[in-house]
């Protein structure tokens, strides 16, 4: 029963990682860059939702919507201001810029909201589910997180594979030049990708803060890095890969916390990254490309 309970919690945490990892992987797939500021968008989403709910006293749905809107605009703005001028710059320059943006967001949050933790009111008001005569208790947050994440993943898969704009995104990720010559506006497509990734990060932020209700300017950093590990684990650039990688990573983290040690669970998560990079550098679903010599 303990195992089952841990498994459910693992899936719940993992599905949040998966939703964040989707942002990482889509941006990487299209812009060929690692957006290390992605994790901090989560934090901004959390704060926006917190302000709307706690300071303005509005219902949680308004808070979630506000978080999504603000993060989407923030994501597009960051891309326009910081990354777009570097479109043809070496990838190292873009990477360092992304790290810079990450610190900028964290420190702006510190400046605006201070360093003391805010206690986030959960957006979920669902009763815990008691199974097997109360020996397995699943919290409302866990259920909502899993359901919302599953819906997001299904919707995104359908959007990318079945719509014109989704096809344009796939085309741009494969060959920008050829896509452009087919009449696709590459810049608009990249903006859209950042918008979608950031909107997902906002949702992830709200879910994450509902489960772990202490909000700090650094709240997004660790989940961001772990979601990046999940994206690499699943095969960076691959959308189903990010989903599988995220869920697996969440399960690994919770199980190792419970059965091994809660202190080294993070170390285990990163050890997974190292092992994956050694054994299968392209990740679970990534393409194993043989270099032609």
């Amino acid at each position: 029963m303990e195992f089952l309970s841990n498994l459910v919690n693992g899936i719940s945490l993992g599905s949040v990682y998966a939703v964040i990892a989707l942002g990482y992987t889509m941006v990487y797939g299209i812009a060929r860059m690692l957006n290390f500021a992605h994790g901090d968008i989560i934090m901004v989403g959390g704060y926006i939702c917190f302000i709307v709910m706690t300071s303005l006293g509005l219902p949680s749905i308004v808070g979630i919507l506000a978080a999504v809107v603000v993060c989407t605009i923030l994501g597009i703005t960051i891309e326009r201001v910081a990354y777009k001028p570097l479109r043809s710059a070496p990838s190292l320059a873009v990477l360092i810029t992304a790290i810079g943006v990450s610190y900028l967001l964290q420190n702006l949050a510190l400046l605006i909201w201070g360093s003391d933790p805010k206690s986030f009111t959960s957006v979920v008001s669902m009763e815990p589910l008691r199974l097997f005569d109360g020996s397995l208790v699943i919290t409302g947050e866990t259920i909502v997180t899993i359901v919302v994440s599953a819906i997001i993943m299904a919707a995104l898969t359908l959007f990318v594979n079945r719509t014109k704009v989704g096809h344009a995104m796939l085309a741009v990720s494969e060959d920008k030049g050829a896509a452009q010559l087919m009449g696709i506006n590459v810049n608009a497509t990249i903006s859209l990708t950042f918008a979608i990734g950031s909107a997902l990060a906002a949702v992830a932020g709200v879910l994450l803060c509902s489960a772990q209700p202490s909000l700090l300017p650094t709240t997004g950093a660790m989940p961001g890095i772990k979601a990046f590990v999940a994206a690499v684990f699943g095969g960076i650039g691959s959308i189903p890969g990010a989903m599988i990688g995220g869920v697996l990573l969440g399960i690994i983290e919770i199980l190792s916390k419970y059965y091994i040690s809660s202190q080294i669970s993070d170390a285990i998560v990163f050890a997974v990254l190292i092992v994956v990079l050694l054994v299968r550098p392209a990740g679970i679903l990534g393409k194993q490309i043989r270099e032609k010599v």
Binding site: K164, H167, A168, L170, A171, E174, D175, G177, A178, A179, M182, G183, I184
Partner: peptide, 20 residues
């Protein structure tokens, strides 16, 4: 320079991007 990971049909549909 086809979009290799996409289906044959989807490749042509990318070409139709601005037609529909």
């Amino acid at each position: 320079r086809l979009f290799n990971d996409m289906t044959v049909l989807d490749n042509v549909k990318v070409g139709l991007h601005n037609q529909v």
